[in-house]
Design a protein around this nucleic acid. Structure first.
Lengths: 255, 255
DNA sequence: GCCCCAAACAACGA
DNA sequence: CTCGTTGTTTGGGG
């Protein structure tokens, strides 16, 4: 499944291709208590004003100020096609004049939200040091990996990039977050931003038009293709925070 | 720390010695949001009408219907003395005409409650088979030891007597409670009552005047002095439900 | 060993 | 590998 950097690229590309387009009709079944009629009522005949990533979700913002939030979950995908019927497992189809945006999902787990309340949880690319320290002080005993992927604390970091971030910061995923020294929290914050923005650039270079799929070959430790980190340490694999985790001995264990 | 049978004996003895006595003054610090002033207001100049054990707590019931509930936690003790100052770590002192009841605790963990709402959780000596089966069906996956010492399900059983009860019933502490057959639940219920009431009798015989301390030498398996159960099986030690547990191979593992 | 609470963990469904 | 929720277990701190 795509993570934050993939979704950021998808957002740009979806916006480039769909901005200004008017939704002529909608096809969907009821998903998460959202009925086709509600969706119809809310966005039909409106045009797409913007497409933005927010956390791990895609926000389609319409000219009438309605917002449709899409979470792809494990297997959801976006596609822009002339004939929607060629796409299997369609969840929602927005038809424009000559083509259509299809959200599909073979597992049927995609989550749709219409005009949800705005979240107070910061996005990983926006988070500040004061917020991070406040949340750390509220949950000092959490493992740093569990902390970073907890979407109720910080939005957008998933299982692949958290390993990259922690390797970049040289912090063991099993560290107890409250035991990480202040200075190292600064390093962590910097790593969050740099790993994610670098990945966005990598993905743009490799898949400039992507609105689906994922590019992972450049990951430095969370990468089954690699046995060593860029600095030559063997990559170890272990479950941490209930997830398969790639890390090396370079990463300091705090606590 | 005393468990249910010890506390049952203490209750009898405290009542025998204090019933009818009038509280002339109280000394304490604020404990659990209960201020000295509140306590003073509630029970000063009242007399002790009864002393009863309830779960692992001691209830001092006053002539004005006020109730003071005392939980001794790990190291709390009762003492009746003429000079309270000889007792270290005093938490509460109720002065009567010629002597005083002191609750002391070197760890400061004693819990006091004034007129608490009456609990709907049955005491281990009162529990019926219907209640037990209902709770089992609500939490069928809990280990039987964890179930029995959970004070929100059943009040009064602690880490020592639960081992005695389970040995008596020949049920392994690691059994999954929902997998224990109906008939064996009856055996368990009978064991709860018989182990506890027998222990009360044992303690009365050995320490007829006790209002503190604990007698444990007669325990058949939860007893560091013994290496074999009465039937000659070696006693094993293991953590179960996060507690040191004594048990033998005689005890059937269900589930 | 007491209790409470946060966190970890597994299972399940969507 | 997603996010919820629920129930259970575990560990720390008072």
């Amino acid at each position: 499944m795509p993570e934050l950097p993939d979704l950021a690229v998808f957002a740009e590309n979806l916006q480039a291709r769909l901005q200004g387009r008017t939704v002529l009709s909608i096809e969907c079944n009821t998903v998460n208590n959202l009925t086709p009629a509600e969706l119809q009522e809310a966005i039909c005949n409106s045009s797409i004003a913007a497409v933005r990533r927010v956390g791990k979700e895609m926000a389609f913002i319409f000219s009438n100020r309605a917002t449709l939030l899409v979470h792809l979950m494990l297997r959801g995908e976006f596609a822009i096609v002339t004939d929607p019927h060629i796409v299997d497992y369609r969840v929602v189809t927005l038809r424009f004049e000559d083509e259509a945006l299809v959200v599909s999902d073979p597992k049927g787990q995609v989550v749709l939200k219409l005009n949800p309340p705005t979240s107070s949880v910061p996005d990983a690319l926006e988070v500040g040091s004061a917020y991070l320290r406040k949340k750390i002080s509220e949950r000092p005993r959490k493992q740093v990996k569990a902390f970073l992927i907890d979407q109720s604390l910080l939005r957008g970091i998933g299982n692949a990039y958290v390993d990259e971030i922690l390797w970049q910061a040289r912090i063991s995923p099993k560290s107890i977050i409250g035991k990480i020294p202040d200075y190292t929290i600064d390093v962590l914050l910097t790593s969050i931003k740099s790993v994610l923005t670098d990945a966005i650039e990598q993905i743009k270079q490799r898949s400039p038009q992507a609105i689906s799929g994922e590019v992972r070959d450049f990951l430095r430790v969370h990468n089954p293709r690699r046995s060593q980190s860029p600095t030559g340490y063997p990559i170890m694999t272990e479950k941490v925070a209930s997830r398969i985790t790639y890390f090396t001995e370079e990463q300091v264990l705090f606590g």
